[in-house]
């Protein structure tokens, strides 16, 4: 791993178009300014990883869905909406995809 020392207001360049600058240092917290092209996604690592592992957990669930009391008896249509179906005020979002 490359380790560089930087002071406030100094920066580094990654590739041709990603700029990371040290905006502020307070105690154990460092504020970074990141300038990158729109297609370069910048996330806090822990957020990214948390979502990723939550997705993996979600995908492992079985196919028996819980019953939430107030929705009990309301059945959806597994085949989804059909062409011509239009969203109605109280219908839930699967009329959703435009045909």
């Amino acid at each position: 791993m490359l380790i560089l020392s930087r002071k406030v207001d100094e920066s580094i360049i990654i590739g041709d178009d990603v700029f990371v600058s040290i905006v502020d240092i307070k105690g154990d917290q460092v504020k970074l300014g990141i300038q990158a092209p729109k297609d370069v996604k910048v996330y806090r690592q822990e957020v990214y990883e948390a979502i990723q592992s939550e997705n993996v957990a979600a995908a492992q669930a079985g196919t028996v869905l819980p019953v939430i009391k107030r929705f009990a008896g309301k059945k959806g249509n597994p085949k989804g909406s059909r062409p011509g179906d239009r969203p109605s005020a109280d219908s839930s979002p699967n009329d959703l995809i435009d045909k």
């Binding site: 990214y48 979502i51 869905l65 019953v67 939430i68 959806g76 085949k79 989804g80 959703l96």
Partner: peptide, 22 residues
Amino acid sequence: GILGFEHLKWYVLLDASQAPFY
């Protein structure tokens, strides 16, 4: 894709047999 499933690019949205899920 979906994070952790970046290789899967196509989906369909289905009503679940149990509201309010999809």
